[in-house]
Write a protein that binds this DNA or RNA. Structure first.
Lengths: 212, 212
DNA sequence: CGTTTTAGTCAACACTTGTTCACTGAAAAG
DNA sequence: CTTTTCAGTGAACAAGTGTTGACTAAAACG
């Protein structure tokens, strides 16, 4: 990569980071301005246009990045969990919460903008969430009791799980930095919820085809 | 009520409605301005201060109103459902979707601002959601298979249900006005999810006290 | 080397923003 | 009937906004 291109990518990074930092402390991407971002990035407002056509485009780039990173995290977690053989809900949730805390900005961004962002960003995040669901679904397939479940049902379960842990992330991020008793309660509740979901899932196959 | 007070409440309404309308079409409360609201309400910017100290205060008033209305809706739904004797998931979900569509603005506001709004609004919505969860939990208690469940567990289940139908509302609201096949799929998926949750819930009691 | 390309700068634009203050005119109070 | 109260007005403010176009200096190119 040429020196010039290299430097360009550097300020592009600065812009993305600046936008992330500004949205991180509970502000909402749709309420940060172009000028704020460039100020935070230490660059003049007009420089922005050398990298993005408008704020929406920056937003999409952020979704891409964050989605990519979160998928990576999920994959690592998957490898760690694979050794366990079973689902090991409690330790998975603990690990997840750790990831949420160490990747504060990313989780905060995706969880907030999923429903609260500008339309185009919201759509992009929704797409990203579908990827998560897809990956989780194929993971669940490896879990023996669910091996023969129809794909649609597996997807529906993965969906439920993803939403559950998303709300957990949102709640965790509202808490102060330190690990409190409240965090412990949130974790316990989520563990119970997931356990209940998998309890239902095991029953599900025998319930298949029921209609009324 | 005096004539003057009556008129005051009228423009207060206009302000609240204006704010609602502006946030309704996917904008996010934190991105609407005081002047936009007064313009939409057909009143001069400074008149705003006769009713609210700042935008946050308006936001809180909105949360109050919307929360109140949604609780009313929930109660009506509860009465309708009480006759059925069992939970009747499918028809409940259909009824719910109908309510979502006929109260577009309210649902859109609460679902979006729950995670995406300004901190003080977010908190207020969270509180409101806790009320929903509480009411649902005591409803579930009337459902025989769950009658003897510890309150904490019932709460955890109610939480799961509320979050599930919240995401359903969010997805429904992204769809065009007309009833599409996509809507049918969303409903089907949610029905399955709820059915699975209650399947797990029935098992849950026998699983009580399990630890590891 | 000289020429071209281009990331970032600078000044300026037309607007929008939240908030102030003194004001008006009609309803309420005496 | 006179006086007081006060919801809504209108003008003005300092500050912030997105976007324009011409300019600079350094890297890339031939």
């Amino acid at each position: 990569m040429s020196v010039r291109e290299e430097r360009k990518q550097l300020t592009r990074r600065a812009l993305l980071d600046a936008a992330m930092d500004l949205t991180a402390d509970g502000r909402g991407f749709s309420s940060v301005s172009l000028r704020e971002i460039t100020r935070e990035a230490g660059v003049v407002p007009t420089a922005f246009y050398r990298h993005f056509r408008n704020l929406d485009e920056l937003g999409l780039a952020l979704v891409d990045e964050v989605g990519h990173r979160l998928r990576q995290i999920m994959r690592e977690a998957r490898i760690t969990a694979a050794g366990a053989g079973d689902i090991a809900i409690r330790s998975s949730v603990r690990g997840y919460v750790h990831y949420v805390r160490t990747n504060r900005r990313s989780f905060s961004f995706i969880v907030r903008e999923r429903l609260g962002g500008p339309p185009v960003v919201r759509d992009a995040v929704a797409r990203e969430v579908r990827y998560f669901v897809g990956e989780l679904a194929s993971d669940l397939r490896l879990f023996k009791p669910l091996a023969n479940m129809p794909s649609a049902d597996l997807d529906m379960i993965a969906h439920l799980v993803v939403h559950t842990v998303f709300y957990l992330a949102a709640d965790i991020l509202e808490l102060p930095e330190a690990k409190t008793q409240q965090e412990e309660e949130l974790i316990l509740r989520t563990v119970k919820q997931l356990r209940l979901i998998f309890l239902g899932a095991r029953q599900w196959k025998s319930d298949r085809g029921n209609v009324h």
